[in-house]
Simulated assay, not measured.
Amino acid sequence: MVGPKRNSRMPAYDIDSLEPRARARIIKSAVSPRPIAWISTTSPDGVDNLAPFSSYNYVSSDEPVVLFNTPYAEGDDQKDTPRNALETEEFAVNVVTEPLAEAMDTTAASLDSDESEFDFAEVDRAPCERIDPPRVADAVVTMECTLYDSMQIRDRLTIFGDVEYVHVDDAVLTDGQIDAAKFDTVGRLGGPYYTVSELLEFERQF
């Protein structure tokens, strides 16, 4: 059943007429909920970094490649996570579920590069199998990645990761597969808001 017809005189915008902040707010609110990559890296100096990125998705599934976006910057102005990922060519994507939401948000704080968000937010580490950076011990899914490629797109830097190894908690499995009904992932909405995934009462038909 299709909903009521929308007013044909609803507000409309020429993107070029808007300030960058207004454009960004529209896009970030319309493209939602956005999955969150809670990315762990280790700097060349051995400092463990952990930060959330809500511009994140996958571009290949049979041969898994994931990506995340971050503002483009040069040298020391670049954020720790993308700089570490490019310099060491390794990072882990930890999936955020509701019990981890507050800790995830805490790791968005701006810290000096010699400080670890794991320690700042009191997040427990666990070792990875194929890469040096640690994973979030309480994450129900973690994907260990090596750098596939990177690309600058206007004011953003996109980093692609080859998924080399995956950790999955038994608690979210049914018959050996991840069960969406057991997997309360956290998504980002526009502005300061988050949301938690809930199943609708109908299933996909096609």
Rank of each mutant, 00 (worst) to 15 (best):
F202W: 06
F68E: 04
V166Y: 00
E98C: 07
D149K: 15
D184S: 13
I15L: 07
C145M: 08
I26Q: 14
E87L: 12
A171Y: 01
K182H: 07
S61K: 04
G176K: 12
E98A: 08
P71N: 14
V65F: 04
S40K: 05
E144A: 15
D48A: 03
E87I: 13
P33V: 06
G191W: 11
E102G: 09
R6A: 04
E87S: 12
S116R: 03
P44W: 05
Y148W: 01
E63R: 08
M104Y: 08
Y194R: 03
A30V: 05
D45N: 05
S113F: 05
P64F: 13
G190A: 06
P64Y: 07
L157P: 12
E89G: 01
T106I: 11
Y13L: 00
V59H: 01
F183H: 13
F160M: 14
F202M: 09
P71I: 14
N69R: 13
T81E: 15
S17Y: 06
K28F: 07
F118V: 00
N84H: 01
I36N: 01
A180N: 00
P35H: 02
L67A: 07
E122G: 01
T88K: 07
S60V: 01
K182M: 10
A108G: 11
D62L: 11
D77Y: 07
C145Q: 14
F183P: 09
E122A: 04
V166C: 00
Y194E: 09
